[in-house]
Design a protein around this nucleic acid. Structure first.
Length: 290
DNA sequence: AACGCCTGCAACCGCGTCGTA
DNA sequence: TTACGACGCGGTTGCAGGCGT
């Protein structure tokens, strides 16, 4: 693949205030012109077009918020990460003023650790309930395996790629009011919308639920040990026989600081498929049966 | 004070996808 | 249909500042 610019003649590294000013002034007056590659030449910047784009999107464009993530935002990020994984641009679309890069950094440097520490606490509680848990996991394994294939009603190639581009473009321009969820999530009203959005964001995601189904269970158990009893209801919800005492299928399910979506729809089944990729494996097989 | 390690963040890189000629 | 340029995304890197010894 040919390089996007002349690597030898472009400046790399941190941006100077002068460069920022040039880029900002030009875009304020002309917009990006739909061509980032040629933009640096137009304004006399010795920068790669991609670098200009990144600088604008992550730092210079208006209404950018840096740092100071609120508890609300933490919860939204965690919830969405659990739902869709490391799709930072999608997650950023739900947090006006936040950039995907910011969220990614925040997750990697702080949030992940925060959750891992909760996991540790949860592990301790789990050991007290291990016998009960193993029985439930065993029950759930056979149940979750029935959810194959991952996209029960929609073939991946049917998904609208145009909407993906539109969606991701929009979130960089301004807060997208049609996809902007507010915390605490009201999944009873937004679930369908999130499902649609997520479908359109995951055009060819080959997730297939073929694992043990223990990931979600471990996560829930470890994150919120005090809710162990309530979880039995969730298992039933997945099975389509909502007999739990905690939530109905239409309600959001919130434990502690992390909000988990309800688990009945196709979307929810898909979420569990994605959970297989939930990368909390640092401690070595966190999601396995140990 | 000096050194080394750690952390957080800005920026870069490579690749997949899209649009178009 | 295909080739190519451009865009967008996620993973990774590198650096600066903080902190402990």
């Amino acid at each position: 693949r040919a390089p996007c610019c002349d690597k030898a003649n472009v400046k790399k590294g941190p941006w100077s205030p002068e460069e920022d000013a040039k880029l900002k002034a030009y875009i304020a007056q002309h917009g990006t012109g739909g061509n980032w590659i040629s933009l640096p030449q137009k304004i006399g910047l010795k920068r790669c077009g991609k670098s200009c784009r990144l600088r604008w999107l992550n730092y210079l464009r208006p209404n950018i918020k840096h740092g100071g993530f609120s508890e609300e935002e933490d919860n939204i990020i965690c919830s969405l990460y659990i739902s869709i994984g490391s799709r930072w641009s999608i997650i950023a679309a739900q947090l006006p003023g936040r950039t995907d890069n910011d969220i990614k950094n925040y997750w990697n440097t702080r949030l992940k650790k925060k959750l891992l520490s909760k996991e540790k606490q949860g592990r301790q509680a789990i050991s007290l309930n291990q016998e009960t848990m193993i029985k439930r996991e065993s029950d759930t394994t056979s149940m979750v395996n029935q959810l194959i294939p991952y996209w029960p009603n929609q073939e991946p190639h049917d998904l609208n790629q145009a909407s993906i581009t539109k969606f991701s473009d929009d979130h960089h321009q301004q807060p997208n009011t049609t996809t902007n969820f507010h915390y605490p999530f009201d999944f009873s009203s937004t679930q369908e919308q999130l499902y649609e959005n997520t479908c359109s964001q995951l055009p060819n995601t080959p997730y297939v639920i073929n694992g043990t189904g223990s990931n979600l269970i471990d996560m829930v158990y470890s994150s919120v040990p005090q809710q162990l009893e309530s979880y039995s209801g969730v298992v039933d919800m997945v099975n389509g026989t909502s007999s739990g005492t905690n939530s109905s299928s239409a309600e959001s399910t919130s434990w502690g600081n992390v909000v988990y979506p309800p688990m009945l729809s196709n979307f929810d089944a898909s979420q569990q498929g994605m959970l297989q990729n939930f990368p909390f494996e640092e401690s070595g097989g966190y999601f396995g049966l140990h």
